[in-house]
Amino acid sequence: MGRAFVFGDDVDTDAIIRAEHVTSADPDALAAHAMGGADPTFAGRFEPGDVVVAGTNFGCGSSREHAALALKGAGASAVVAESFARIFFRNAINVGLPALRVESTAGISEGDALRVDVGEGSVTDETTGEVLRAASYPAFLRELVDAGGLIEYGRRLLAEGGEGPDGPASRRAGTGGP
């Protein structure tokens, strides 16, 4: 269970982690400045297990993986948004930060108690009783998430000898892709 920290649409990477802090890629160091461009008090109030909630196009702008790492370092149990910017979404999947896309986050208010089940793809707002279903990941992305991120996935390919581009056949998309 965690508390909802609610943001709007088009939260850009400068809002998530200001450029002055990207000289380190250590998640714990970045966490101290998480969401600092949008709300300088965020890092002091956000606790492990809490949830970042947003509208559309969360994480637009820079490719800096530091944005996903800052939220991972802060212990976010997930980012729940109506849509994600492409590179932020890739980065989140690759570093193991759950990014769940739901139809609407309009019913979630600041401070609501949220229960996020990443495996099941559900977000339950215990304050209002609303249950949101997250779009499913395509099979390939589930494999990445299950492996623990892209590097762990790559290590497994190396161990299995399937690291070439002609490895296992391509997979069809689900509904919650990047």
């Binding site: 993986e65 980065n91 892209l150």
Partner: peptide
Amino acid sequence: GVGSTDLAFAMAFGW
């Protein structure tokens, strides 16, 4: 454009 982990993977595997 990609992130750092994607770049690491691409540099290692070429895909």
